[in-house]
């Protein structure tokens, strides 16, 4: 366990000391501030608009940064050959991977918290109510990050940062539409064969089954209309995300343990 934490801490420290990371977070917060100011100046329903736009920005920036950081971190260790000095130490390869993962998560926790605090500060300035549902929404954004980071790590355990970034991004987009894909039905035009479309729909269902259902983590509509989430929703979504991440990490560890590092 200690080895995992040592790796995680080092990963965290490396990201925090990286100027690119710091400027990305600043940029995200800046974007947030500007957009909030604009929506606050719009004529009506400013609070609803602020919630909608604010959550969109927090979740998008978090996911993009997560893909960026998650897809490059393991590869960087290999490319820079720092991994050569770590794996020969008395540490299991999976411990290294889990340490990297927890490092990414702690970095993302900082990023999501900073953005959420900036968002809450805007509400406070306008004397608007942030509310419980907003807090839950922010938490669920972080759970989405937990899932996306695990995917990024899975892909980067066997491919290059560019490829794993693209793959993660692809799965991320599919995941956001997973609920729609899962129930997709296609109706043939009179002159088309229904069979081919059925096969396409079945494929979409399969894709939706493998991809994580990220629509679970978007509760913007509840937040905007200030309605309570269903009982147990947050817990259920959190557990589902955690389970998905664990599965990704197990697969990643298996792939990683078979690799040659040359």
């Amino acid at each position: 366990m200690r080895q995992i934490l040592v790796i995680a801490l080092n990963t965290f420290r490396e990201a925090i000391r990286n100027r690119i990371f710091a400027s990305l977070v600043l940029f995200a917060v800046g974007m947030l501030a500007v957009t909030m100011a604009i929506s606050a100046a719009s004529l009506h329903e400013e609070v609803r608009l602020m919630k909608d736009v604010g959550l969109f920005l927090v979740s998008t920036f978090s996911a993009v940064l997560c893909i960026f950081v998650g897809a490059s971190l393991v590869y960087k260790e290999i490319e820079r050959k720092t991994i050569y000095t770590i794996l020969p130490k008395p540490i299991h390869r999976w411990q290294f991977l889990v340490g990297k993962y927890l490092g990414v998560l702690s970095v993302m926790a900082v990023q999501t918290s900073v953005m959420s605090l900036a968002l809450a500060a805007q509400f406070w300035l306008l004397e608007a109510d942030f509310g419980l549902v907003m807090l839950q929404a922010v938490w669920l954004i972080f759970v989405e990050v937990v899932v996306v980071a695990a995917l990024a790590l899975l892909f980067s355990s066997f491919s290059t940062p560019f490829l794993s970034g693209m793959l993660t991004f692809g799965v991320f987009v599919i995941g956001r539409f997973a609920d729609r894909l899962a129930t997709l039905t296609l109706k043939a035009a009179p002159d088309q064969s229904q069979e081919a479309l059925d096969r396409a729909a079945a494929f979409a269902h399969g894709v939706a089954w493998v991809a994580p259902d990220l629509s679970l983590y978007n509760v913007t509509s509840y937040a905007v209309y200030d309605t309570h989430l269903p009982e147990g929703f947050v817990l259920h979504a959190t557990l589902a995300g955690g389970l998905y991440a664990v599965i990704c990490l197990v697969v990643a560890s298996i792939l990683f343990s078979r690799r040659d590092f040359m």
Binding site: V6, R17, R80, K81, T85, I86, K89
Partner: peptide
């Protein structure tokens, strides 16, 4: 390792403390 490359963000004490932590 051959032509080693290390975590550039670390200072010497942090660096050795990191490796020590793996033991």
């Amino acid at each position: 390792p051959e032509q080693p490359y290390f975590y550039e963000h670390l200072k010497p004490m942090e660096f050795l403390d990191f490796y020590g932590g793996l033991f």
